[in-house]
Every structure is written in C-alpha cells, then in structure tokens.
C-alpha cells in the first residue's frame, strides 16, 4: 500500500498543506507580535528608554524600516535557508538556535523512547483487564501523577535526589557530561519529570481508545466467535484504535519541544522553550518567528505522522 500512487499523492497533498499552514502561522505570529506593546529598542533600554535614546537605537538597529517589510525580507531569507540575525544580540539565529534545538530534541527523543512503549503497553493492558485492580491501580496512579504541578515534581525531585541523597546533580546543563554515566545522571531528573506527565496522558488515552473499540459490534462478534481476550484486543480492537491513539500520542509529544519551559527553568537546561520566552519578552521578531516555525514544524510532523498512521491502520479510510 505504501507504493500505491494514491498514498504518494496523499503525502504530497499533506506536504503542500503543511507548507501553507506554516505560512499562515508565520503571518499570524507576525501580526501577534505587532500587537504587543513596545518594541526591541524600548525593551532593551528598559527604564532608560527616553524618546531620543529609543529613536537612536531603533535607527541603529534598522528598525525604522516598516515592520511588515522587515518581516517579508525575513521570510524571503528563510526561503533561501537564512533565518536572519537576532535583533537583540546580532548573532545569527541559526547559531543561536542550533545548539538549543539539539538539546530540546535530545530530551524529547529520550522521553519519547521511554514513554511511548511504556504507555502503550500499560494502556493496552489496562484496557484488556478493564475494571481489574491492575486497571484501577494504573488509573489512579496516572491521574495522581498528572495532578501534581510539574514545577512541584521537579523541585521535589531536585530536593530529594540532589540535595538530600546527593545522587544526582541539581543542574542538567553545565555539569561535565564526559561519560555515559555522567550523562545518564544529568538527564535522569528532567526525563523522569517529563515522563510522568507524558506517560500519564498517553496511558489514559490509549486505554480509553482501546476500550471504546472493544465495545464495537465487530469486536464483540469476534469475542462471541470464541477469540481469546488478548487476541481480541491485539488483533481486532487495537488496529482500529490506532488512529486515535496516534493522535493522542502526537498531541502529547508535541508538548515536549516547545512546552517544557518549567523543566528547562528548574534544571537549567537550555532548550528552545526558554529561547522562545526570551524572544517574546524582548520582541525579537526574527527569533520569535524562527522558534514559532520550529514548534510548528515539529507539531505538523507529529500530527501528519499520526494522520498517516490513522489512514494506514484503517483500510476504509485509505480509499
């Protein structure tokens, strides 16, 4: 089915649409930034922003050109792969972003590699033995985990493992990660903190989606025909639940790139979420745009994958 022309047509279609979505987001972000009070010059000067000083700095930074023109030329640059320079520190955005993007992706990658298998297994198992003590235990545990604010989990983890037990470093970045052991130690706490939240979400959604398909007539039919419970779930219910599960997983994972500001802050881990916050608070348009594009691309990639899985897993949707 992967070789069929319709699938490729579909992929091509989705890519075009994704490209248009990006463009729309880019314009939306531009207008949103324009709505914000103050500009780079004002914010950089802070309390020292007298009108003359602001005017002088604006001119020096090239901000006296109309914002929309600046945005268009940034967009033109992006088309050639040039993300421009930060207004604030005049560093190439590619340079500013690359290191931190790698950090973010690495963290997200580790969390994904742990969470997806664990959550799918637990979620499906809970659905399979729905109503059992195992199911209830998993349910209560998952809700309890996500009910505790993330900053509290993170702070508590640092307090216990770094301050009291002295097993792990309190900071994830800046410690010498020259060995595998050191790297594991450095990543342990952020990964655990994020895994709690992400796993809990995915387990619950997987469980719910599988249970719902168990209730559908044809799975009930299979059960009547004498299929075993596990066979019923894995062979009949799961493929049909794959679409919704993939979507839920994609939504959970999309949070890992741009939404982990608390973890980045508490563990002093330089990623793109903090970069975006900095960019917004200094009104650094090229940087805001670049970060927004990164988030958007990662989000679109994930949901497109999810849509593909949904379509491929349901034969009736492929037509």
């Amino acid at each position: 089915m992967l070789r069929s022309p319709t699938t490729w047509l579909l992929v091509g279609q989705r890519l075009t649409i994704a490209f248009i979505t990006l463009l729309i987001v880019s314009f939306a972000v531009f207008f949103a930034t324009e709505l914000l009070p103050g500009d780079v010059a004002q914010i950089l000067l802070g309390q020292a922003a007298t009108p003359e000083a602001v005017a002088g700095l604006r001119e020096a930074m090239g901000l006296d050109r109309p914002a929309f023109l600046r945005f268009l030329s940034w967009l033109g640059g992006l088309a050639t792969g040039d993300m421009g320079r930060s207004y604030v520190n005049d560093i190439e955005i590619a340079e500013l972003v690359s290191g931190r993007l790698v950090n973010s992706l690495r963290l997200a990658g580790i969390v994904t590699a742990i969470c997806v298998p664990v959550s799918l297994t637990l979620g499906i198992a809970a659905a399979m033995w729905r109503g059992s003590w195992f199911d209830r235990g998993v349910s209560i545990m998952t809700i309890s985990f996500i009910s505790v604010p993330e900053f509290m989990v993170a702070t508590l983890a640092v307090l216990i493992f770094a301050v009291w037990l002295d097993w792990l470093p309190a900071l994830s970045y800046g410690v010498n990660v020259d060995s595998l052991g050191a790297m594991l130690r450095a990543y342990a706490m952020p990964v655990i903190t994020l895994s709690f939240v992400v796993c809990a979400q995915m387990i619950r959604m997987t469980r719910a989606a599988v249970i719902e398909t168990i209730n559908t007539p044809y799975v009930e039919m299979a059960l009547l025909k004498g299929a075993s419970r596990s066979r019923m779930v894995l062979v009949h219910a799961l493929p049909n639940a794959l679409g919704p599960i993939a979507n839920a997983v994609a939504l959970s994972l999309s949070y890992l790139v741009g939404g982990v500001i608390i973890v980045e802050t508490i563990f002093n881990y330089p990623g793109v979420a903090k970069l975006m916050v900095d960019a917004v608070s200094t009104r650094d348009l090229p940087l805001i745009q670049s970060c927004a594009m990164i988030f958007c691309v990662s989000y679109l990639t994930l949901i497109t994958l999810a849509d593909m899985i949904a379509i491929l897993s349901n034969p009736r949707l492929r037509q």
Binding site: D166, A170, T265, N268
Partner: peptide
Amino acid sequence: DNNARVNAVLSGD
C-alpha cells in the same frame, strides 16, 4: 527559579 538556585548551592553544584 529561586528554589532551583538555592538547591543548586545546597547540592554543591
């Protein structure tokens, strides 16, 4: 984050 800063000095980082 204030707590994180305090914890980092407490843990010797």
